[in-house]
Amino acid sequence: LEARLEAADLFKKVVEAIKDLVQHCNFDCNDSGIALQAMDNSHVALVSMMLTADTFTPFRCDRNIPLGIDLTSLTKVLRAAQSSDILTIKSEDAPDVVNLVFEGKDQDRISEYDLKLMDIDQEHLGIPDTEYAATASMPAADFKRICSDLLLISEAVSIECTKEGITFKAEGDIGNGSVTLRQHSDLENSDKNVDISLTEPVALSFSLKYLTGFCKATGLSNQVRLCLSNDVPLMVEYALANNSYLRFYLAPKIGD
């Protein structure tokens, strides 16, 4: 494997966004790119990352290799990379370590780290292709704000999506709160759009602790997409350049 990223920033942010949810995971490398799928310990949330080969310049991977990595250790190594550094990830065929090289843009500093790999026996889960009843795209910063505000009211949020908009409701001991985003297109700045497509109305409840955790990915993308169907896990997607993505799945709360 040899994969070079123009800016370490992307990889730093991806790892930062998932490291509190999952601790040990396999980065599955093959000729299509670097993928990761891992569930949290409580089996409530799942992270699915894809960094396509096109994200790297260049990308070369001659055979499928899983790189079992402790994300806490990887975070320590990535601290040494500045956001604008060129990052190269390298590994041998049957590796004991993954090699990370950080080069300053002006090329007067080269840092090289070897990170020990772990044997991780991780089962791969099939995520069924789902035609979601509702998808809502919105500014990622707005979603983060809504989740963190409502977490002060309650540990759960009910998300209701209709043709009119998407509503987040929290009911807590101190009172209730709700935020509605109406569909709109900002002609000057499409990053501010709220776009809803709906085949049937949905209403589901989720843990805000997990949703605020997913929002650690906010810096990766201007927009976030929520995909919902009644009685199936929510998908929260941060789309990245070159068809790469960071997706989170969250099991709904079950009504009594």
Binding site: V44, L125, P128, A251
Partner: peptide
């Protein structure tokens, strides 16, 4: 108060 579901019933091992 509702309980928390898990992903196991939706996503099966490959």
């Amino acid at each position: 108060i509702s309980g928390q579901g898990t992903l196991g019933e939706f996503f099966k091992p490959k």
